[in-house]
Design a protein around this nucleic acid. Structure first.
Lengths: 141, 141
DNA sequence: GCTTGCTCCTGTAGTCACTACAGGAAGTAG
DNA sequence: CTACTTCCTGTAGTGACTACAGGAGCAAGC
């Protein structure tokens, strides 16, 4: 059994975050030592690691809770997991697309700054009417 | 002069968000009508629109506050704006890269789900040791 | 046995950029 | 005058943590 510090080290989850996960019921409450300290088994640490990896992959906690509730009956879970992963992939793709459009917009704004005149063309353009409205709607390009 | 509803419509900033910007000192307090309602000039609405566009471009509020403080003396601002825009571009590029790596990881995880066996290989892999640790460090690929 | 220093405890508040809601007042149209 | 809409203030909630205050447990050295 490991204290929270070791569990944090081994799982890669911050100590404060572990306590937060416990408070929120995302991971089960661990046992305690005589002095009241949390004690984690290797399985519990593996669960923390699992949560961290899912978070690293960008899954929201709500998804991870579903994952954790599914894991005992693996045989049913695969379809659900796949659906959630696909939804998540869709969101990631949308985010990438948005960021790339945003990058283009920024580049086109800031390259004008090279001309050395007194005014800043970038702020100018942002102040004017009509630029960049509807940046996040897919109709305009 | 326009009420907050019209200002919201014309600037594209939510009513609650306008009040939030005022509370936080991001935009100056507008005048009030006899009955105590906020009244916005076209200039103030333009400022709100400017804030929204910058937010759409992903700038944090702190940057936008700098932009707004710079705009009166345009002649000095261009360099600073460009620096901030370039920093911001760097962050956007990093985000895009991370998301793309993340997409690859997810794809490679979820495509195994096709094989129709009872266990979910995706959750399996995430539970195991060694997968995906250091996803967000740039050393690993 | 005692001190030092580290780790841990609880509980609360702060982060970012909003968003939502409750309970009431002002303004407008018929 | 009534009904309806818009607005007001103030507070709390969102997601996923992070930080801090003030105190307690624990191990090692003297």
């Amino acid at each position: 059994m490991f204290t929270i510090g070791k569990a944090s080290e081994q799982s890669g989850v911050n100590i404060e975050t572990i306590r937060y996960y416990e408070r929120e019921g995302i991971v089960p409450k661990p046992g305690r030592s005589a002095g009241g300290r949390r004690l984690y088994s290797s399985d519990e640490i593996a669960k923390l690691r699992f949560v961290r990896r899912c978070r690293d992959l960008g899954f929201p906690i709500s998804n991870i809770q579903t994952f954790l509730s599914l894991t005992p009956q693996y045989d049913r879970s695969c379809g659900e997991v796949r659906t959630m992963a696909e939804n998540h992939l869709g969101e990631i793709n949308a985010k990438i697309e948005n960021l790339m459009r945003l990058r283009e917009a920024l580049l086109s704004l800031s390259k004008n700054c090279d001309d050395g005149t007194a005014d800043c063309p970038m702020l100018d353009a942002l102040m004017k009417d009509g630029f960049g409205d509807g940046l996040h709607e897919q109709s305009s390009c």
